[in-house]
Design a protein around this nucleic acid. Structure first.
Lengths: 220, 220
DNA sequence: CAGATCAATCGTGTCGACAAAATATTGTAC
DNA sequence: GTACAATATTTTGTCGACACGATTGATCTG
């Protein structure tokens, strides 16, 4: 159950926060989510807490059963595989659009982020920092794509893969490989080569998916 | 407001039906959707009617304002354009997967549907039949792709383009062009050429989008 | 007649209460 | 101690009532 917080008070804010909590595993699969707890946590009336739950259910983040309540969904291997199939296509489009919509200097700060400090945080075992850099890059790509429909769908997919991403980053060799691949994507974007950029992020997703399949016992 | 129907009684059924009503313009943009009307129409308590509204809002089919209520959203040109950008990528993936997952004989019935009767229904001005054939084809593709995540996202996109599709089919020359293009897609699928099939449905979507842009005053 | 003010109405927002179902706990018998 | 039955508790489901905001229409005034 989420902890107290007296600020949000709106259904939208509660949904955003719950998505974050679920996709980051601050709430783990199987956790129960009583309406009353939600209502208290976000200072909402129970009717609105139910709206939040209905929305989360429609986003496939929780399942609800009549007279039993809501529990956080687990993501199985099959679904993860399907999520990555879709991600490959959507990320590809996002990167393509981002390349077409930006000029090289727009990526100066990301280049900085992907410089030596990218390896350092990894060597220091700071996975949080590593993942955060990647999330920043992806957020920038999504924004640069300037397609709200795409952003919306990608967020729905990310919400269901975020935890897996984190675990994949811990697998032997994966993070180092990721660094190389993300830099390759960024290089193509800066170079203005949309085809190459799309191709490279597709490869990146495929290789992440391969890792997940190979190490599924540790990741899921 | 939706008319009475004493069967569904479940939130899920109400959502499906409302999605259909909105995307088919049985409910036009700007229509108001009072909670009480929804509740009566589907024989639901008001609390569950609110869950339906919350879900429809999250799917971008309606907008709600505090103390005012819900109205059916209009889809503007900009959004339509973005929807088609995403469709191109998702349809491409769906067709690719469908090609890989099927054998030629799986498409016998669709071939029948896309035979001479395809032109006949158009010549007879039977747009409903024409559009229905296309929807059947797309449903088959989605099912053959065997990716629930993809199906889910595509439905969300279709819900927001369905009306436009219908109107595009009425534009001069578009339907005839569509017939050729859909047949080309089907041919590539049957031939087992996933690359060609994906390329062709992407072209199809692009050309539909071009039509929409050219005739936007009549379509939106 | 224009414009402001007020009243009535409609629909949402919120609360409280309780029924109904599922689950957990306790009690009892063997 | 186990198995089963009865009971208590928890949580969802539903209803009714009413406050509040927004909108509409009527009335009054200059």
């Amino acid at each position: 159950m989420p902890r107290q917080k007296r600020q949000p008070t709106t259904v939208e804010a509660a949904i955003v926060d719950m998505r974050r909590k679920i996709s980051s595993r601050a709430l783990s699969p199987g956790s129960r989510l009583p309406e009353e707890d939600l209502a208290q946590a976000y200072d909402l009336p129970r009717a609105k807490a139910r709206e939040v739950l209905a929305t989360l259910e429609d986003r496939n983040l929780i399942t609800r059963e009549p007279n039993k309540g809501a529990v956080v969904s687990a993501v199985d291997m099959e679904t993860t595989y399907r999520l990555y199939e879709v991600r490959e296509a959507l990320d590809g489009l996002a990167v393509r659009l981002a390349t077409l919509n930006t000029k090289p200097s727009d990526w100066d700060d990301v280049s900085e982020l992907f410089g030596p400090s990218f390896e350092e945080s990894l060597k220091a075992g700071d996975i949080d920092r590593h993942v955060e850099a990647i999330e920043t890059f992806r957020a920038r790509i999504t924004a640069a794509a300037r397609n709200p429909v795409l952003s919306d769908l990608l967020e729905r997919v990310y919400d269901r893969t975020r935890v897996t991403i984190r675990r994949v980053a811990l697998l032997p060799g994966r993070a180092a490989m990721g660094i190389t691949q993300y830099r390759a994507v960024l290089e193509a974007i800066i170079r203005g080569d949309a085809d190459a950029a799309e191709q490279r992020i597709r490869e990146l997703n495929r290789s992440a998916r391969d890792y997940i399949e190979r190490y599924k016992d540790y990741v899921l």
